[in-house]
Nucleic acid binder design. Structure first.
Lengths: 331, 331
DNA sequence: CTGTTAGCGCTTTCAT
DNA sequence: ATGAAAGCGCTAACAG
């Protein structure tokens, strides 16, 4: 591997001159700059990032923290779409991304701790929001720059980007109400994440505003329990529509409905949040709220890199809009 | 941020002694080692990875190369399960992973090029296998250590780990034949990846061995085309079972069947490859071949790190077994 | 068992 | 416009 010295020697200049050429310093004559660049090509030289980082203290690397859990949680297409947005936008700004995950919260914390200590991650993006989160506290304690994708909770003025989940839930509920549904139930998974709380809130608001009786049910992400729960819910009342708090839960619900031979949309309508291919290719395709995960990721990177680089730009919008994608499940 | 010198000063030893304590060198008296460790704690000291890498030339970082494509390709749970396996096992061996992806092949190549040039990735894992792949050629040209998850093609004696896809396809086909199916069709997506070729081969072998007429159809991953294709295939013949080459295609197929009001498993059985939650929570749950993606990832890391660290251990098994997970779609 | 010394490859004053 | 020199934080001979 050729070093900056090799290039310097070949070009008959000092290493500092080569260094200046690399970062496009203007005070270098065109002729030498040209010559140096030729030599770099000739030797197939590329600057060693480690060495550069060591002196500049700029690794151009951001850490992404997923919530812990098993595969089916982390493989939520919603999260993956955010990841894609982050990745794409980071690349454009020549930032590298490394993601941290774990099965348990404790392990996740340890992992994040490790990557803080290695001191080459310049900032973090937190892919979830939850009150009293140990990982966020870690970030605060270590004064790491970070941005949350989700609702900002701590009073540390943290950077964040989010959807208006209450509004989105109101919209989706109203959409069904406008189709003359009256008995609409809301299914949500057990969890203390903020998103779900907001969606419940929005549903409640919309139902109450139309003087309809809301019914909310928390269920674990588990085939059997979901099935039993549905049997219970559907036998007593004349439920005509189900809203689920997230696509993964919705997927399980429609799988259970299929088993129960309750056909969608004939007997019951279903709709959910976080659109993705999972909804487009479900049986039948599902109506869902698109939360523009790509944009969430993009904006998160934007905020974080701006903050890291000191050029704080607070003019940008932190709330990403949403829209309902209508599909067969509610038609 | 405290450095090794600060620790050394506080402990009244030289930096080299601290360095030795860090890497657990045995030739350090217990008393000083203890004292040094105390000082590290006291100062909240953690070694700077960059500096360490610069001198040792060991970054303990491996690069993962996904195939290019849009989200629905990269979010294939099969790939993500491999990723999880890689990640988990890397962590255990305190390796870091960074993944490279892109929408197009050209961009992917450029990205990989960049990460080779940055010279801090010690080896790569290629998540696909394809003949005449430009990215693999790049790895070869730059003499990067790498392992392929999939069929080894180049004659460079590359490390690899794979399933016996032909065998798996034979098994799955036989499973259906044993259930007295005779008209079984095989649907595969357009693509030049090796996995699919092998699965087709296995299907063919099994059908021919039982003197049944095979029927293979390539289709693009596209809702409309799949639907039309199914209409065509199902009207002419008395097809009783469909095998798809991958879960994503299968998902689209069952969505189309739902639309066509052809119920599974009553009118037709379906089965596919690469098991995941997508099959477990499909409508109805799908029979699928589990290829143990976690183990594929795990073994890939094992081979790669062994190779990087010079302790070549060729005794380990490179072919990961498979098994059929039976679910409602074929019952 | 421990200290001294010389770098790893790069950037960055400070000169000129 | 360019070079010399110092040093980022760490490790690795070589001494002793």
């Amino acid at each position: 591997m050729p070093t900056i010295k090799d290039v310097a020697a070949l070009a008959n200049v000092s290493p500092s001159t080569v260094s200046r050429v690399i970062k496009g310093n203007s005070r270098i004559s065109n002729s030498t700059a040209e010559r140096v660049r030729d030599c770099m090509k000739q030797l197939n030289y590329y600057p060693n990032q480690m060495a550069r980082t060591l002196v500049t203290k700029r690794s151009k690397t951001i850490g992404i923290i997923q919530k812990s859990g098993d595969n089916s949680i982390k493989q939520n297409p919603f999260l993956l779409d955010i990841l894609t947005g982050i990745h794409r936008y980071s690349e454009k700004h020549s930032y590298l991304t490394v993601v941290t995950t774990s099965t348990t919260d404790e392990e996740l914390k340890r992992e994040v701790e490790r990557s803080i200590q290695s001191q080459y991650i310049e900032g973090f993006i937190l892919l979830y929001s939850r009150a009293h989160d140990a990982v966020e506290q870690l970030l605060i304690d270590n004064q790491c720059p970070y941005v949350i994708i989700g609702k900002p909770l701590s009073n540390h003025g943290s950077l964040f980007v989010d959807n208006d989940n209450i509004g989105a839930a109101i919209d989706l509920t109203n959409y069904l109400i406008n189709k003359n549904h009256e008995k609409i139930i809301f299914l949500t998974e057990y969890s203390d994440y903020e998103v779900f709380k907001d969606r419940v809130k929005g549903y409640l608001q919309a139902m109450q505003q139309h003087h309809l009786v809301p019914q909310i049910q928390s269920i674990p992400l588990n085939r059997k329990e979901i099935k039993n729960c549905l049997i219970e819910l559907l036998k007593s009342d004349n439920v005509t529509a189900i809203i689920t708090s997230d696509t993964m839960l919705n997927m399980m619900v429609i799988s259970a409905l299929y088993e129960l031979k309750i056909s969608i949309p004939e007997k019951i309508k279903t709709a959910t949040f976080n659109d993705s291919f999972l909804n487009a290719y479900a049986s039948p395709p599902q109506t869902a709220v698109d939360v523009y995960p790509d944009q969430l990721g993009r904006m998160a990177v934007h905020l974080l890199t701006n903050h890291i680089e000191g050029n704080n730009d607070y003019s940008c919008e932190h709330i990403i809009p949403t829209r309902i994608i209508e599909r067969s499940s509610t038609i």
